[in-house]
């Protein structure tokens, strides 16, 4: 396939079709959309997973290690196989971010229970639900005391 895609978030900048990541199962909530593109400036902490087929859909994502420096989930072999990886070292993990609307971004959360697993070479991806109890869907981005400080509460 050739050609370019436009997305609201990238403005007039066009996305090359070759940048497309295929999520054969779609994503929960966006089951019908299989083609996505990772966008964002090289040095940004937050990147965006843009829906290639609906320019209004974009999910902010980040490196889960930034939220939990010890993040080392066990990825099921069948999930790795599905994206064409022979081992966990071949894939990139991203956590989907949720922020409250209209401010207080420090109250945001990262989904560490269901990371996006992406193989950079096959360009296949899947949102994988871990079976590990220690990870949560709504993982706070910042420690409670940091949040309290930002909200001007007690030190």
């Amino acid at each position: 396939m050739s050609g370019t895609i436009r997305h609201r978030l990238t403005g007039s900048a066009e996305i090359e079709e070759s940048a497309i990541l295929t999520f054969p199962r779609g994503l929960p909530g966006f089951e019908a959309y299989r083609r996505w593109v990772l966008a964002g400036e090289e040095d940004s902490v937050i990147q965006w997973l843009l829906c290639a087929d609906d320019e209004h859909i974009a999910l902010p994502v980040t490196d889960p290690l930034l939220i939990d420096p010890g993040y080392s989930p066990h990825l099921p072999a069948e999930a790795l196989e599905e994206v064409g990886a022979r081992g966990p070292e071949e894939v990139i993990l991203l956590a989907v971010l949720v922020l409250p609307r209209g401010g207080r971004p420090w109250r945001g959360t990262a989904n560490l229970l269901a990371p996006l697993v992406i193989h950079p070479d096959t360009r296949l991806g899947r949102q994988v639900v871990l079976t590990e109890d220690r990870y949560r869907i709504l993982t706070p981005l910042l420690p409670e005391e940091e949040i309290a400080r930002l909200e001007g509460g007690n030190p």
Binding site: F30, W48, L97, V98, G103, T109, A114
Partner: peptide, 19 residues
């Protein structure tokens, strides 16, 4: 997970920039 993904899709650029 569905709800979190849908909520993520409504995050504004401005809030993400602040984060």
């Amino acid at each position: 997970v569905t709800e979190a993904n849908r909520a993520a899709a409504s995050v504004s650029r401005e809030d993400a920039a602040a984060l």
